[in-house]
Design a protein around this nucleic acid. Sequence first.
RNA 1: GCGUCAUUGGUGAAGUGGUUAACACGCUGGUUUGUGGCACCAGUAUGCAAGAGUUCGAUCCUCUUAUGGCGCC
Length: 373
Amino acid sequence: MKIEYQLEKVEKNTKARLGKIKTNHGCYDTPMFMPVGTKANVKSLTPEQVKDCNAAIVLANTYHLWLRPGEDVINHAGGLHKFMNYDGPILTDSGGFQVFSLAKNKKKDITEEGVHFKSHIDGKSLFLTPEKSIQIQNKLDSDIAMSFDECPPASASYDYLKNSVERTLRWAARGKQAHTNKNQSLFGIVQGGAYEDLRKYSAIETVKMDFDGYSIGGVANDGESKEDMYKAIDYSIPYLPNDKVRYLMGVGDPIDIIEGVIRGIDIFDCVLPTRIARHGQAFTRKGKINLNNSKYLEDFTTIDESCDCYTCKHYTKSYIRHLITTKESLGGTLLSIHNIRFLIKLTEELRIAIKEDNILEYKDEFIKKYCNK
RNA sequence: GCGUCAUUGGUGAAGUGGUUAACACGCUGGUUUGUGGCACCAGUAUGCAAGAGUUCGAUCCUCUUAUGGCGCC
């Protein structure tokens, strides 16, 4: 079965949507936040810990799993769910972003056929095509596969983006053609930078191919401004169908999530909560804090008094600071739990705000606290 | 007691008669948006044991003192 999206309500004053997404691994509410589990694990967390945060879909990565352990190994293990012991839904990214990010400063050759680039592990020459990416994802047996797109840098010129959008459309069509796993949904990706006509064109043409869901890509890349990011969303959304889920790729700053939801986004994913956790930082209602800071040495309060996560139920800032400064991995684990729960709780509250038609008030109040400190 | 070698920041230490005393760790901040990440960036000794002298100029040369290591009686 493919996923099904059910739109339940649009907030009165904005484009924010309340919905449900039905998958082969459960039914979940949107807007939602997906933790990132690149190599078939959310870094430093067990699947139980991820679920305790009330997470639903987890994102894994085609590129990384292709290189290690290889899609066949995971296929022989019985698919990604069994392999990693996660019975919730899994979305696999296509590898398009990795071509852009891992090979950013290296030689890469983007051709019509696919992308030649070097392995980040051993430098071996690799060739990834839309068909190959889909075939790997078919074997991984994730619930949702992503089309193989080109993710150009924020600094790309209009002419470059125009060609790139065209190529991504052709790649999307090829990927759809190659897609054979009937239990797996396939999403198309809208590109086009911060240009209205390119986003519109990309969205309309992608929707014509009739995917199971749509995402907005090419956003939040190397120093792109917030304004450009919001433009990219605003220029894409009007052309996406109401009865399909919308996924904003790579976005996970709390304020960006709120802004995204207000603009009509249903799903987000981001490495931020787990990455900053490993570097000692935590989201709180009063802004991001750095547990490395000496002022927490004897701070025996919890990270965020309004948080209901496992970490905030049991541990003090002083203890977590101790773990972080002594580089104990438990520190990253506890902070990852908190940060993931923070973003998921944020989406839960946004869902309530949509129900109550007061999302703009919610946003103002959140930002007031989050930015003032 | 005599001889000898040492003494550089929070730590381990490099170094030179002449602009800002290397590097590392630590410490203090910051960054991170479809994860090549226990990562990255920045700051961190107005001073080279103390005092005096030589010199245009001394952390570097000389002397005295202090402290410590080693050797000899």
